[in-house]
């Protein structure tokens, strides 16, 4: 464990908690893409099946359980409890255009052709594009609540910190995982446009609205 990975995990945890609290406290999921949240629940489910097979550390297990719990709670709030506030008309990204190619790629490019490894690879590839429905929804509505932009900022920051973590681990441990690195670079690049708007607008107290 290094400071970049720890900060990255805490940033990821912050994002997940911020979103869940925002929906729970405001009793509304307006502006939130339910599709992205379903994809994240799928990412955690397929990646953390090793909860059942191996124990790495208390930290590892605890964080995985929290991530899975919060992501399912968020999906539950959006599609069941607060369904009336779900803005389905703007959450129209065709997720099958993500899941099918990602599923296919996981079969073609992986470290090991075993079920758990294929699912982990699928999860890594899916996570890199899972935010697209949310970014697409913001481009359609033309704006995002400030709390939603903070959620996106921490979510984007987490994988950017993981990139530094991988540089650190390569240099000090000779460890590197090309699949995770390439997917992580793609994932972080997808946030660049948002990061620019976040820094130039939200951090200056303005509302995030498009066109920029």
């Amino acid at each position: 464990m290094n400071i970049f990975r720890l900060t990255g995990d805490l940033s990821h945890l912050a994002a997940i908690i911020i979103l869940l609290l925002k929906i729970w406290k405001s009793r509304s999921c307006a502006g939130i893409s339910g599709k992205s949240q379903v994809l994240f629940a799928l990412v955690f489910t397929t990646r953390y099946l090793d909860l059942l097979t191996s124990f790495i550390s208390l930290y590892n297990t605890t964080m995985k359980v929290i991530y899975i719990g919060c992501s399912y709670a968020t999906v539950y709030l959006i599609y069941m409890k607060l369904k009336a506030t779900y803005d389905g008309n703007h959450d129209t990204f065709r997720v099958e255009f993500l899941i099918v190619p990602v599923g296919g790629l996981a079969f073609l490019v992986n470290h090991d052709f075993s079920p758990l490894e294929i699912l982990w690879t699928f999860s890594i590839y899916l996570e890199s594009v899972a935010i697209l429905p949310q970014l697409f929804m913001i481009s359609k509505t033309g704006e995002a609540e400030t709390i939603t932009t903070h959620y996106l900022f921490f979510l984007g920051l987490y994988r950017a910190l993981y990139l530094i973590n991988w540089i650190w681990r390569f240099y000090f441990e000779g460890f590197f995982d090309m699949i995770a690195i390439v997917a992580g670079v793609v994932q972080t690049i997808l946030y660049c446009d948002f990061f620019y708007l976040y820094v130039t607008k939200v951090l200056k107290g303005k509302k995030l609205s498009l066109p920029a």
């Binding site: 990975r5 090793d50 995985k64 470290h111 973590n165 590197f176």
Partner: peptide, 10 residues
């Protein structure tokens, strides 16, 4: 395979 078998990252 430069990856450790055990996936220790989240």
């Amino acid at each position: 395979r430069n990856r450790t078998d055990v996936k220790d990252e989240l």
